[in-house]
Amino acid sequence: HNLTITQGKLFFHYNPKLCLSEIHKMEEVSGTKGRQERNDIALKTNGDQASCENELLKFSYIRTSFDKILLRWEPYWPPDFRDLLGFMLFYKEAPYQNVTEFDGQDACGSNSWTVVDIDPPLRSNDPKSQNHPGWLMRGLKPWTQYAIFVKTLVTFSDERRTYGAKSDIIYVQTDATNPSVPLDPISVSNSSSQIILKWKPPSDPNGNITHYLVFWERQAEDSELFELDYCLKGLKLPSRTWSPPFESEDSQKHNQSEYEDSAGECCSCPKTDSQILKELEESSFRKTFEDYLHNVVFVPRKTSSGTGAEDPRPSRKRRSLGDVGNVTVAVPTVAAFPNTSSTSVPTSPEEHRPFEKVVNKESLVISGLRHFTGYRIELQACNQDTPEERCSVAAYVSARTMPEAKADDIVGPVTHEIFENNVVHLMWQEPKEPNGLIVLYEVSYRRYGDEELHLCVSRKHFALERGCRLRGLSPGNYSVRIRATSLAGNGSWTEPTYFYVTDYLDVPSNIA
């Protein structure tokens, strides 16, 4: 807008934040220059609390790290170098490059900038070799853009010569660093050979998330399962459950009422301010606690030095998902009996873990797994792929695949051998790939016309006998059925096997 004052003059007093240069501009645009008398524009009460600059400061050096910015700028000295009290560095987070010096300023003089007072450097006698002032900004957020400017702080001049310097606002972004852990990993099994893994992005990506790394490792069953005799009275049979499938998407929606109208769909109840505040506090606490764990609990591995020492970490090797089922080394339970199943799973520490690289999504279907087997899954978020990966501390989750139908069934015939004193040795093959492992066998036998009897055969007993022995049988026709019990439950009964026990007292003698 054009402003013209045809008559009258300007009068400025007691404006401590208004620089004289701005008042002189007002004289020019209003056409009143030359009308004012000496005392109409006070030299001592206008701009006496402001830094009124008329020179431009330029930054000469900028260096960044993930949490620091090192700045240096060209030296500046007023005509009387004693008038320079120091520099004021202003900075704040700036997602967009549209910041002005006066953003967030209120009537009390406060604003949204963080201000650092910096002492002037030592003055050199040689004007050509003056030290460049600077400042190291610490405690910054990774991968965050900051708006920065600097200006001088000078003393009051009796001659009211307006001098000083100020830089333009520059924008500097800190470097990326390792992201925080992925949030809320959930693993479920939808079949006997697959596990579905879902997660949420890290709360602090500290860069642009480029991919996720998912490692999985087959877990050995508890050692007590191999040692305890679950045929003993009072000892509860062990059981394991597989990871249940995901709930429906509708039930997972946030901010939804727990109660549904019987007449149909209901609208979600909005969260109160107290609920939102509580969630923010919980989120802040979780982030602080995660940072504490990362800094205190997890110790970084030592990389190899120039002395030739090897990095103890196993090298990563990509495998196809079809090879995942046989990740671990199978060892027989008892070496003397080769027909026992290889369900003991000690994992070799030198073995390469299978892994998958996930790009542009937060889910993965891990296939080719062994049925009813526990897996430990390790999830890392990465925001750099080359020249070397920059990934987060791992988040861990466990899951067990679903049982395989008929995996616990005894394959092959049940054979028998009759000894003296009416002892019958029953023999059968253990299931080759049971659900988890076989903890015991149930032997059901009966003599024709009598009630059915049951015998429990422990895992250890089966390994020693290759089956079991029935003792003290009365003469007669017998039928026997056997079924295995694994961590997933009972298998199917075998087809009945028949044998006849004679009275050993009636056996004919070869003595003449």
Rank of each mutant, 00 (worst) to 15 (best):
P205D: 15
N206Q: 04
N206P: 02
I209E: 09
I209T: 15
T210S: 14
T210P: 13
W216R: 09
E217D: 10
E217R: 15
Q219M: 06
A220L: 13
A220P: 09
E221S: 14
E221F: 10
E221M: 15
E221R: 09
D222K: 11
S223Q: 10
L228W: 05
L228M: 07
D229S: 06
D229A: 05
D229V: 03
G234W: 07
L235C: 10
K236I: 05
P238S: 04
P245T: 10
F246Q: 12
F246H: 12
F246W: 13
E247C: 13
E247S: 12
S248P: 09
D250K: 08
D250Q: 10
N255I: 06
N255F: 03
S257D: 07
S257V: 04
Y259I: 05
Y259K: 12
E260S: 11
E260Y: 12
A263E: 13
S268E: 12
T272W: 06
K278D: 06
E279D: 04
L280N: 13
L280S: 09
E281R: 05
S283Y: 11
S283K: 15
S284N: 03
F285P: 03
F285V: 03
F285N: 03
R286G: 02
K287Y: 04
T288P: 03
T288Q: 10
T288M: 08
D291M: 06
V296I: 04
V297T: 03
V297D: 04
T303P: 15
T303Y: 15
T303K: 08
S304F: 14
S305P: 11
S305G: 04
S305F: 13
G306I: 14
G306L: 08
G308V: 13
A309F: 02
D311T: 13
P312S: 13
P314F: 07
S315N: 14
K317I: 12
K317S: 11
R318P: 11
R319A: 11
R319I: 15
L321K: 13
G322V: 12
D323E: 07
V324Q: 12
V324D: 03
V324G: 07
V324P: 12
G325M: 15
V327E: 09
V329A: 01
V334C: 06
V334I: 14
A335D: 15
A336M: 15
P338S: 10
P338A: 09
S341G: 09
T343R: 10
P346L: 11
T347S: 12
E350L: 12
E351I: 14
R353V: 07
R353I: 15
P354K: 08
F355W: 13
F355I: 12
E356A: 14
V359A: 14
N360V: 13
K361V: 07
S363Y: 12
S363W: 07
S363D: 12
S367C: 14
S367D: 08
L369Q: 05
H371P: 12
H371N: 05
H371M: 03
F372R: 04
T373V: 14
G374L: 13
Y375I: 14
Y375W: 07
Y375T: 06
R376H: 07
I377D: 00
I377T: 02
Q380C: 11
A381W: 00
N383E: 01
Q384K: 12
D385S: 02
D385Q: 12
D385F: 13
D385K: 13
T386L: 15
P387T: 15
P387D: 00
E388A: 07
E389P: 11
E389S: 06
S392V: 03
A394V: 07
A394Q: 13
A395E: 15
S398K: 15
T401A: 07
E404S: 11
A405S: 09
K406E: 14
A407Q: 14
A407L: 08
D409L: 13
I410Q: 05
H416E: 09
H416K: 10
E417T: 13
F419K: 13
N421C: 08
N421G: 10
H425W: 08
E433Y: 08
E433Q: 11
N435E: 02
G436Y: 08
L437R: 15
L437E: 04
L437C: 12
V439Y: 14
V439F: 12
L440A: 07
L440H: 07
Y441S: 01
Y441H: 03
E442Q: 05
E442N: 13
R447F: 03
Y448F: 11
Y448R: 15
G449V: 00
D450P: 07
E452N: 12
H454R: 13
L455K: 08
L455V: 12
V457N: 00
V457A: 08
S458T: 07
S458F: 03
S458Y: 08
R459S: 08
K460W: 14
K460T: 11
L464T: 14
E465I: 11
R466T: 06
R466W: 06
G467K: 10
C468S: 04
R469V: 08
R471Q: 12
R471H: 10
G472K: 14
G472Q: 06
G472P: 07
G472S: 09
S474K: 10
S474P: 06
P475N: 11
Y478T: 01
S479V: 08
R481I: 05
R481V: 07
R481T: 07
R483A: 04
R483V: 03
A484S: 11
T485S: 11
T485W: 15
S492K: 00
F499L: 13
F499M: 03
F499Q: 08
V501G: 01
V501S: 02
T502W: 03
D503Y: 15
L505V: 11
L505I: 09
D506L: 12
A512V: 09
